[in-house]
Design a binder for these strands. Structure first.
Lengths: 112, 112
DNA sequence: TTGTCGTACTACGTCTGTCGTACTATGTCT
DNA sequence: AGACATAGTACGACAGACGTAGTACGACAA
């Protein structure tokens, strides 16, 4: 029924991506499936949102890209992978603190 | 130290305004002070954000404006007040549900 | 064999909400 | 006289999400 609106999710997309990459390097399609899985199917990131996030995050040096062969047979097929940087880990830690603050503040305006 | 970034707060500004107006009708400056107070000084809404939210929210019929004399002496000074509408109350209820869902989802990506 | 589905993206343009900057105007306090 | 609180309005820039569309390949079913 209820869904997470884009005005809300935009505050957390980078954090979710970093949270996935913190475990191990990965690539677009796999990351989107992880986000769906971890959220229990309650949040599905849009493709365009995800790939434009990669561009921004690489520019901010929160992630780094590299290519890997998809097929070890060596047919030249490659896939773009991303890994989190130290700066990205630091940013993720700050976002976790920000989340604690946000929870604290927003709860005061919410009726349950 | 940590602050709530605008990418995060944008998901909640309308909700905070409605939460204040749910108690009683009010006007811009007073609402901004209420938000600061209720948040324990941890969130201060920008003037331009607040007033542009009023325009949007009135268009969406979540709030209604009316004018009141500031000075009962009758010197003609007026102030624009806003009150929450039924549609606004309904929207607020939905936002509270969305918050519960958001908390549930985001916590899975956060390390404490 | 033709079409759909899953995988794995890229490109482009639009829209919304926030923000910086600046300006107006009044009253009170120092 | 100047700063500060009150109570706003106007304008343009910018970032991030989104809709739409297109590419390309392999598997699998009708």
């Amino acid at each position: 029924m209820v869904e997470i609106s884009s005005d809300v999710s935009r505050g957390y997309n980078d954090t979710m991506i970093l949270s996935v990459l913190k475990k191990e390097p990965s690539y677009g399609y796999e990351i989107s499936k992880q986000i769906k899985l971890i959220s229990g199917g309650k949040y599905i990131i849009k493709e365009t949102t995800l790939y434009s996030a990669f561009t921004r995050m690489e520019k901010n040096q929160h992630i780094e890209s590299f290519t890997l062969d998809t097929d070890p047979g060596g047919n030249g097929k490659k896939r773009t992978y991303y890994r989190i940087t130290d700066k990205g880990r630091e940013y993720y830690r700050e976002k976790c603190e920000e989340w604690a603050l946000t929870k604290d503040v927003i709860e005061k305006f919410i009726e349950q």
